[in-house]
Design a binder for these strands. Structure first.
Lengths: 228, 228
DNA sequence: CCAAAAGTGTTTCACGTACACCCATGC
DNA sequence: GCATGGGTGTACGTGAAACACTTTTGG
């Protein structure tokens, strides 16, 4: 069965840049099992179906290819350069996603295709223009993390202030002052002190906090503006 | 002649939100001369051809439908909801553009189609989901104008500080202090004092300035960050 | 001379930044 | 008891915000 149209149409795809935080910032890639770029690492993605929105397509492809399901997902940019796919004209709506690595560490190699996490500091050359897409995603993450509380999407539900600080230092690529950092994030008033401490550490255990999203939204309504 | 594909494809379009600054913030619309939404006002736009990038498609449609040519153009967001076009599935890559009204005041009604400027405070109900696209564009403009020097794209090459301030007051929807505003923008060091004054005004003539883009880029390289 | 907008400085306060030491815990 | 990271307060300086009067020009 084929589909015919009066005018030529580009194919429409979605591609996802999935970030996770470990010792450093990681990206989830899959190895292509068909030409073109067979064997090369690429962003998870695929073609958009007629009965699903772009967001739905992105979530479906992620689920199918990597098993990753619950995540923060946001549209990034649409890439439409003429020669970006050597087979034919393909326009790709890129998304970036943030996941808690604690939830997804194992699932990386579930499906038929090989999937793996790579440090953003040590990436292989990617298929298509996926290098470029990844750079745009990184720039967006760096920019957005400062004025939207999206960093918490990369952390487990309970985290220490040191873990939060380390996340910001990694994403922003600069050291932050411990006392000033704590003063600032605590003064914002949306971190709930859980009165628990981390377990099994070989030093003084740190207090655990959680991001109180409800409280954050209340504050935002009152005119509060997150910034770090 | 028709084009056939193995899988169904959505149609791919571009739509443009063109902003201009007069007494208030204006948007350029065209009246649809065919169904669906015949007679309704809509954003200029059209389908993407296979031999042009998305940016090129946006510029071509703008030129064809409104005569507007030299402008600041930036991709906004891609809209892909299922029922957004009643005929069939259409995914639309939206752009927003900033033009100097001084250049384009006349051309509004050139082409076959009727084109006109509307105040953003007094808009008609638009075709498709164009109301939504316009709201997203407005939000983007409001956000971006504060940390990127895009406001100058809305002003003539020579402008007064009062005109610049009024622009910011309109976009940000709040009054600004005259002395603080002047102090701040002048201290940034990319406004060139032209040693000229405006003509034909019924009061004391104000000095004219221009945005020194080269200087701005130098400063940016040195780590300077625009913010207002 | 009147109307209309241009242009100009100082004070105050909040917040960002820099900085060093003691504490708790596991081994 | 020692190594490791956790946790805490103050002083200083910069920059944002508030604020009112004089100047210039055309009509």
């Amino acid at each position: 069965m084929t589909f015919s149209y009066e005018y030529a149409r580009p194919a429409l795809a979605v591609d996802c840049v999935v970030f996770g935080m470990d010792e450093d910032l990681q990206v989830l890639l899959i190895r292509r099992d068909i030409e073109p770029f067979q064997g090369r690492w690429a962003l998870p993605g695929g073609f958009v179906r007629l009965d699903e929105t772009l967001d739905e397509a992105a979530r479906r492809e992620l689920e199918e290819e990597t098993g990753v399901s619950r995540l923060y997902l946001e549209q990034l940019y649409t890439f439409g350069d003429i020669g970006r796919d050597p087979r034919e004209r393909v326009v790709s709506v890129a998304y970036y996603a943030l996941v808690k690595l604690s939830d997804h560490r194992v699932k990386a190699a579930t499906d038929a295709r090989e999937a793996a996490w790579f440090s953003v500091d040590d990436l292989p050359k990617l298929a298509f223009d996926h290098d470029k897409i990844l750079q745009v995603a990184l720039a967006r993450l760096k920019g957005k993390v400062r004025y939207q509380p999206i960093g918490f999407e990369l952390l487990p539900p309970k985290f220490t202030l040191s873990a939060l600080q380390k996340l910001y230092e990694i994403v922003l690529e600069r050291p932050l002052d411990k006392r000033n950092f704590r003063k600032k994030v605590l003064s914002m008033g949306f971190l709930e002190d859980l009165d628990e401490v981390e377990q099994d550490v070989a030093h003084r255990a740190a207090r655990l906090y959680r991001f109180d999203k409800k409280r954050y939204q209340e504050l935002t309504k009152e005119g509060f503006h997150f910034e770090l």
